[in-house]
C-alpha cells in the first residue's frame, strides 16, 4: 500500500506535464483551428485550398506519425526545439484540424441572412467573422470541442514515446520497477485520467451554459 502511495505521488507530478501539454496545445489549436476555419470559408481560393489540404492530410494521419515527422523530420531541415515543444507542435497541428472542422461546421450552420446583413452594413470579411459569425458559432461548437479536447488530453500520452516525461512515460517506468503492483499502478493512472477528464467535462458544460446565456 505504501509502495503504491509513493508511485501515485510520482505519477501526480507527471500529470502536471500532461496537463501543461494539454492546456497549451488546447489554446494553440483553438487559435490555429479558428484561423484555419476562417481561411477555409474565406473568399480567397488559394487559402481555402491550402487549409483543405492541411486538414485532410493531418486529420487522417495517425497521431504517432504526425509526432514522428515533427520530432525527427523537422530537425533534418534545420528546425530544432526541445522534445516538449515538438510534442506541443505535433499535438497542436493534429488537434487544430479537428477544431477547424468543428468551427467550420459551426460557421456553416449560421443562416446566410446573418452574413448578408453583416456584409451589407459594410463589415469586412474579418469583421463579419469576428462580430457576427464566430460569436454565433461558439454556441454550437462548444459541445464537440469538449470531445476534441478530452481526446487531446488522452492523445498527449503519445508524447511519452517521444521524449516527454508525462504521465504515461512515468507510469511505464514505475511499472518496470514495481513489478508486484503493475495492475494497481495502471488502475491508478487510469483513475487519474478519468477524474481529470470528468472535471474537464464539467468545465465545458459550464462554458456551454454561459455561451447559451450570453446570446
Amino acid at each position: 500500500m505504501n509502495e503504491l502511495m509513493g508511485v501515485i505521488s510520482t505519477l501526480l507530478r507527471a500529470f502536471v506535464t500532461t496537463l501543461e501539454l494539454t492546456f497549451l496545445s488546447a489554446i494553440l489549436s483553438l487559435v490555429v483551428g479558428i484561423l484555419a476555419a476562417a481561411m477555409r470559408v474565406s473568399p480567397v481560393p488559394p487559402l481555402r485550398w491550402a487549409v483543405s489540404v492541411y486538414v485532410r492530410l493531418v486529420r487522417n494521419t495517425p497521431l504517432t506519425i504526425v509526432f514522428f515527422i515533427t520530432v525527427f523530420g523537422l530537425p533534418q531541415v534545420g528546425v530544432n526545439f526541445s522534445f516538449f515543444s515538438f510534442a506541443l507542435l505535433a499535438l497542436t497541428l493534429y488537434t487544430a484540424t479537428f477544431v477547424a472542422e468543428t468551427v467550420r461546421a459551426g460557421i456553416q450552420a449560421i443562416p446566410i441572412g446573418q452574413i448578408e446583413a453583416a456584409r451589407s452594413i459594410g463589415l469586412t470579411f474579418t469583421q463579419v467573422l469576428a462580430y457576427v459569425v464566430l460569436p454565433q458559432a461558439v454556441r454550437s461548437v462548444v459541445p464537440p470541442l469538449a470531445s476534441t479536447f478530452i481526446a487531446l488530453f488522452k492523445n498527449s500520452s503519445i508524447a511519452s514515446a517521444f521524449g516527454v516525461a508525462e504521465a504515461i512515460s512515468v507510469m511505464t517506468n514505475m511499472v518496470n520497477v514495481h513489478s508486484t503492483i503493475v495492475l494497481s499502478i495502471m488502475g491508478a493512472t487510469a483513475a487519474i485520467y478519468v477524474a481529470l477528464a470528468l472535471l474537464f467535462g464539467r468545465a465545458f458544460t459550464w462554458l456551454e451554459r454561459k455561451a447559451l446565456i450570453a446570446r
Binding site: F72, P75, N80, F162, G163, A165, N173
Partner: peptide, 19 residues
Amino acid sequence: MVLFDSSAKCAQAVINGQA
C-alpha cells in the same frame, strides 16, 4: 535523461543531434 518508447528512436535522436 530523455525517454522514448524504442531504442530505434533514440538512435535517430542521436543521429539528429537531439540527444
